[in-house]
């Protein structure tokens, strides 16, 4: 177990290192370098700014310095506003994280409920109906779902606020719009895992002991049946980050995604690469946690 852990930790560090290097190279490969966007700047100012950011040093020295500052957690500084990437993340990251977690919870809760029910009632109309709904759900992109949800629940029915974050109710629609497209995938994975689990000997034992069917399914079988869903959490979160760009734009949420998207049009390259390094690091760590959780849920994998 310890060896497995150390191995995973080492490969995670390699990935983060590659990401940092890639972001450095991208930043310097930008046509004309990071400060070439404003033509009105005089040559002297341009020169001074480049000197300030150490762009006259050799590429190798800049690289070492960049990696060094990344290692201490400094993700860089915006070149359009007087704000560092760390400040941006500290200020706007939490809002995005809350919306993301709610979206992920939506996907997992609805998806597992659907998948388990479908597996329990396999090859009945319940199963077919739920799996058809799942496949339909996978096909509706969040930027279609979002405006439709707003039109239905905020404008027609007036139940929930249409945009911006103002009180707890304003999280409902963004979380739904973000999470619903994953419900189908989670449901299919949960169904597959549960079908596998329900055929195992320990489930037969539990039934033979006379445990109520509900306990057998939701307590004994679910623990094994949910493992494919746990594995999916890493990739799901990875795509959910790009989903959050769309959701935050539609619902006008001042989250990290909004600032990331704005820096595309602002050509604020240091923010782009800094936030990217942050996202990548978060996901690598998350995948590490998911791997650990795997061992806790399914003890059979610990002996690897």
């Amino acid at each position: 177990m310890i060896r497995f852990l150390l191995g995973r930790l080492a490969s995670s560090l390699v990935v983060i290192f590659v990401v940092a290097t890639a972001s450095f190279l991208l930043l310097h490969a930008a046509p004309g370098g990071p400060f070439a966007t404003d033509a009105r700047r005089s040559a002297a100012v341009q020169h001074a700014m480049e000197a300030r950011y150490g762009l006259h040093d050799s590429l190798w020295r800049q690289y070492v310095r960049e990696i060094g500052s990344l290692a201490t957690g400094d993700l860089g500084h915006s070149m359009k506003k007087d704000v560092s990437v760390n400040q941006l993340i500290a200020e706007h990251g939490p809002t995005s994280a809350v919306v993301g977690l709610l979206g992920l919870s939506t996907a997992v809760v609805f998806g597992v409920l659907m998948g388990v029910t479908a597996a329990w009632r396999k090859h009945t109309w319940v199963d077919y109906l739920l799996m058809t709904i799942a496949l339909v759900g996978i096909s509706i992109p969040s930027f279609v779902m979002g405006p439709l949800l707003i039109a239905a629940f905020a404008i027609q029915l007036g139940w929930l606020p249409p945009a911006r974050i103002d009180g707890l109710t304003s999280y409902v629609l963004p979380a739904l719009a973000l999470g619903l497209i994953y419900v189908g995938s989670v449901a299919r994975l949960a169904r597959g895992g549960m079908l596998d689990a329900l055929g195992q000997d320990f489930v037969r034992t539990a039934r033979a002991k006379g445990l109520p069917e509900r306990t057998v399914v939701w307590k004994h079988a679910l623990r094994l049946g949910i493992t494919p869903v746990v594995t999916y959490l890493g990739p799901a979160t990875a795509t959910m980050i790009s989903g959050s760009f769309v959701i935050e734009k539609i619902f006008q949420i001042p989250g990290l995604g909004t600032y990331f998207v704005n820096s595309i049009t602002d050509r604020d390259y240091p923010v782009l690469t800094g936030v990217f390094v942050f996202y990548a690091t978060m996901l690598v760590l998350l995948n590490l946690v998911v791997d650990l959780a795997y061992g806790v849920i399914d003890p059979r994998t610990r002996r690897r």
Binding site: S11, V15, A22, S23, L26, L27, A29, A30, P31, G234, P235, T237, A238, T239, I241, S242, F260, I264, R267, Y269, L272, T273, F276, Y279, A280, L283, V284, L286, N287, V290
Partner: peptide, 24 residues
């Protein structure tokens, strides 16, 4: 296959966004 594993949990779409915007 480790490379594939690593890329699975990686925000590849975000990388595409960064590349497309940096190279305009």
């Amino acid at each position: 296959m480790r490379v594939v594993d690593a890329l699975y949990g990686f925000p590849t779409v975000v990388l595409v966004i960064v590349v497309m915007s940096v190279f305009e």
